[in-house]
Design a protein around this nucleic acid. Structure first.
Lengths: 239, 239
DNA sequence: GCAAAAGTGTTCTCGGTACACCCATGG
DNA sequence: CCATGGGTGTACCGAGAACACTTTTGC
């Protein structure tokens, strides 16, 4: 049995949620879009997490420190890979900024692709190789849920960030607007979530205080996630 | 790379939480306790879920219908198995009643072992083979969390059950007492969680209405989980 | 009647929501 | 001074917690 690792790596660029995709450089699914990934090498001491971190570094140039990587699950349908029995362990990664991905490995290049948090798959230029559409959807759901319960949001931000930036993370990943005042109180009220650096930053308007991520990992009680507003059916994309 | 499946199967017997363990019938870890499990057969069409269901049926005699089985995660440390590179995918299973497990396969027999929901590992006669202590702890945490957010609790109950039985599931898995009145209102208030069968059952005291599990899968809002009361440090078992 | 368990009512409190309002900066 | 975003105050509402109380059975 062959074991691979696939990565669902999200970032926020230009106010929108993006996933890292590669265009496949070999069969099967040559030239189609897929999630970045690689093989678990049995002869090395890398476990799955190390393999995922290595792959991510290769694709994005980012080193494993200071970025979040977590296991999503195993995908094992017998016919998911035409080459034979391949089980893949999917990971979800979160990247703070907007570094251009580095091409390399068996991929012709990696690219940040915008996706709609309400409907992953919409906005994509077709479907992905293997069962990667499913993995992407599961990964998005995981991140959305983790934002509610864990102190994960700063992973999308630079080391120091304003409350607006943090709020935009939630709004972007969830696809809903939040109340500024209530978000502030909630975020600052959770013990150990945010640390006040003395600093402030001015872009436009009143200067904003800057925060660093605190030691807390869980959010008690959770960050409330508003019910998705009922879109009118804009076009297609229903189920 | 070899891929195996390990099972963390819980049930409630005699008012206590129990896990299914086997005594290993072969090297490595001969004669030690371990989680039941088996190999993913590359030549068959079974995916991991099917393999887990098959193993569970072999060990307990229970067929896959009407029992809950869900993926927990992959464990892949390079040195977790002395035979070489073995990645295992752990599953969590929930079994309703108290069927005696059937011995078979490569195990000398399977047994239900009581565990303390506050400290898995306490109460065990020593530690488990491989990294199964860790997997067991993760599995317990998963079930405890799932009870909060999903309509999983009836999986521990017979098809028809009273509210007391359901409440005892929560109390047993969480290891804390719940308020009878508030639990009742909460459980009945969640739309689609419980269906009223007309029937009642009398053991002692006033007859109780019986319910079946409804179509709901998520609990909105979650079943509130009380903070664990501070035990005085009874003895050891701290971290 | 009494014990035991099922089921109901009521009050208090706290967190979330909505929205009005004030503050600091750049132009 | 005004526009822009940062930050504070406050009144309302609903869910959860605690606990008193009533109902239905067996003995």
């Amino acid at each position: 049995v062959t074991v691979t690792v696939d990565l669902v790596v999200f970032t926020i660029r230009a106010g929108g949620l993006h996933v890292l995709l590669v265009r496949r450089g070999q069969q099967p699914y040559l030239d189609e879009l897929a999630l970045p990934g690689g093989f678990l090498e049995p002869d090395q001491d890398d476990d799955l997490d190390a393999t995922a971190a290595r792959e991510l570094a290769e694709e994005t140039g980012l080193h494993a420190s200071a970025l979040h990587l977590e296991q999503l699950g195993a995908y094992s349908a017998a016919d998911r890979d035409p080459r034979g029995r391949v089980v893949t362990i999917a990971f979800v990664g979160l990247v703070p900024q907007l570094p251009e991905p580095a091409a390399g490995g068996d991929a012709n290049g990696a690219l940040w692709t915008p996706i709609d948090p309400a409907a992953p798959g919409a906005g994509l230029p077709g479907s992905l190789a293997f069962d990667h559409d499913q993995i992407l959807a599961d990964g998005l759901a995981r991140v959305q849920q983790q934002l509610e319960h864990t102190a994960l949001a700063p992973a999308f931000c630079p080391p120091e960030f304003s409350l607006s930036e943090l709020r935009q993370v939630y709004e972007t990943v969830w696809g809903v607007p939040l109340d500024i005042a209530n978000f502030r109180r909630k975020a600052l009220g959770v013990d150990g979530f945010l640390l006040d650096t003395g600093r402030t930053r001015t872009d436009v308007g009143r200067p904003a205080k800057l925060y660093r991520r605190g030691p807390a990992t869980q959010l008690h009680p959770p960050m409330p996630r508003p019910p998705v507003p009922h879109h009118h059916i804009t076009d297609g994309e229903e189920r």
